[in-house]
């Protein structure tokens, strides 16, 4: 049974990846140097659903109040917005961090092996006021949380 759900997630993931492939073929995304490990399609996706789909395997996530995002309500400087994500869930295998209104929403994917606590902190750039989204994969399921951050000076372009 468990195997089946995993397989379904995998299938959904490949569908999402295909749609990015189509976008690539249509010239919407510029192909560059391809790195084997780096999830290029996820990082270059412009739509939030596609980015989540390519990064986590499925664009569908369940909102969870067990995930806490620590970020400022108002960021004076969008170039440096400290973000901490903490998930009070068991069996977390990965955490994806996205900024909804950035040109490429996906900021980072953290892969956590067993023994690493589901708690990471980093700093991101935000182009404008937007939600920060955390997508946490725990026990093969996807959970998400979001938090709005108001940006007074953008960090992209400039």
């Amino acid at each position: 049974m468990k195997f089946d759900t995993k397989r379904r997630v995998f299938l959904k993931g490949s569908v999402a990846a295909t749609s990015v492939g189509v976008a690539l073929g249509a010239g919407l995304l510029t192909p560059g140097a391809v790195l084997a490990a780096w999830n290029k399609s996820a990082f270059e996706a412009k739509a939030i659903d596609k980015a989540i789909g390519a990064a986590a395997g499925s664009p569908t996530t369940t909102p969870s109040d067990k995930i806490t995002i620590k970020a400022p309500d108002i960021a004076e400087n969008g170039a440096v917005v400290p973000v901490s994500i903490k998930a009070g869930l068991d069996g977390v295998t990965s955490i994806a961090l996205l900024v909804e209104k950035n040109a490429n929403p996906l900021s980072a994917i953290f892969h956590l092996p067993e023994g690493t606590l589901p708690e990471v902190s980093t700093r991101v750039k935000m182009g404008k006021t937007s939600d920060v989204i955390a997508v946490v994969k725990a026990g093969g399921k996807l959970y998400s949380a979001r938090k709005g951050v108001k940006v007074t000076i953008g960090g992209c372009g400039g």
Partner: peptide, 22 residues
Amino acid sequence: VVLNCEWGASISKNPYLAFKFK
């Protein structure tokens, strides 16, 4: 390996990273 990250360009200049493991 205790942490493996994939980062995009939207991580801030001079990146900061903090995490914990058992």
